[in-house]
């Protein structure tokens, strides 16, 4: 209970006295900023599975880039594009539902990454973990710069395409009528998604970035209704989770990235539970709960 009895020592001191915590905080905040605005659309449009698949789909690109000696960011981006293209190809050439084509490529890309790494006799063969879980304690200035660029692209991309995303999300037919080119908008969203994943993987890793993409926006959807507010709430939830996760990691010596990701999920579950309890209390008092269901 130290976080109540001695709040300064628990909440503040770690960040003021520890440069690793400061770096991790900056990196974490940038991850949150990038993923929450993009993740909001992923959640609203029901693209979680695609998001998860993309987060892993970049792995073979990273692995190949390592072996060839190219910048891993480029490798990751190429792999992401290849995956999106492949999913569309399968979908347009078969009667299979989209989740099947995503699933096939998801596992295909993941397996390809492992196969590539196992065949390479060079360095890093054992470091799959590093890609999957990242290293928020090891972020350097270059990583932070890359994250800033990604955050700027994500924020401005979402701002520019806001109307297109909105109409496409809630009324696909109308988007076409309005000339908003839903396919282009969808493509832009996927690129933004890829950018936010790639920019975050050094810090939190390919496996855990998905937590930041989904959990804070999902929490926000439980709390507010309008899209701009969802984005804002998602960012706030993400920030709170990052700070709490880092502090728990600091005080209890747990892996930083995983603890932050866990915090986003715990916050989601807490909000979900609290909301269910409030709803139950509300309905017992005789309110109709028709007004508060759903999103």
């Amino acid at each position: 209970m130290e976080f109540l009895t001695d709040p300064v020592a628990w909440w503040i001191d770690p960040f003021t006295s520890n440069v690793f915590m400061q770096r991790a905080l900056y990196a974490g905040l940038l991850v949150v900023l990038t993923t929450s605005v993009v993740g909001t659309w992923v959640v609203l449009r029901g693209m979680s599975f695609l998001g998860d698949a993309l987060a892993h789909g970049v792995l073979p690109g990273i692995a190949l880039a390592f072996i060839i000696g190219v910048d891993t960011t480029i490798g990751a981006f190429v792999a992401a594009i290849a995956m999106v293209w492949g999913i569309n190809l399968i979908r347009s050439h078969s009667v299979l539902p989209e989740d099947t084509s995503i699933g096939v490529l998801f596992v295909g890309f993941l397996a390809l990454a492992v196969a590539i790494m196992s065949s390479s006799s060079g360095a890093y063969t054992g470091d799959l973990n590093r890609f999957l879980f990242g290293s928020i304690t090891g972020v350097d200035a270059g990583d932070l710069r890359r994250q800033v660029v990604a955050a700027v692209i994500s924020l401005s991309g979402v701002a520019i395409f806001y109307r297109a995303f909105l109409v496409m999300t809630f009324d696909h037919a109308q988007a076409q009528v309005l000339g908003l080119r839903p396919r282009l908008a969808h493509g832009v969203l996927l690129v933004l998604l890829a950018i936010s994943i790639i920019a975050s993987f050094e810090a939190v890793g390919n496996l855990l970035v998905f937590a930041f993409l989904i959990a804070p926006p999902a929490t926000a959807v439980l709390l507010v209704r309008r899209v701009p507010r969802i984005m804002a709430a998602a960012a706030i939830v993400g920030i709170v989770s990052t700070v709490v996760g880092l502090l728990v990691s600091y005080h209890h010596r747990t892996a930083a990235g995983a603890t932050m990701a866990l915090a986003t999920v715990v916050v989601f579950l807490v909000v979900l539970t609290a909301k269910a309890i409030l709803l139950a209390i509300g309905s017992r008092r005789g309110h109709t709960h028709a007004a508060v269901t759903g999103i």
């Binding site: 770690p14 006295s17 520890n18 440069v19 690793f20 915590m21 991790a24 054992g126 973990n129 879980f133 290293s135 304690t137 090891g138 880092l246 990691s249 600091y250 005080h251 010596r253 747990t254 892996a255 930083a256 990235g257 995983a258």
Partner: peptide, 16 residues
């Protein structure tokens, strides 16, 4: 890396 486990990661308190 604080423990011998291969999944372990560095953490900020330990590094400081």
């Amino acid at each position: 890396i604080p423990t011998p486990a291969s999944m372990a990661q560095a953490n900020p308190a330990g590094l400081e």
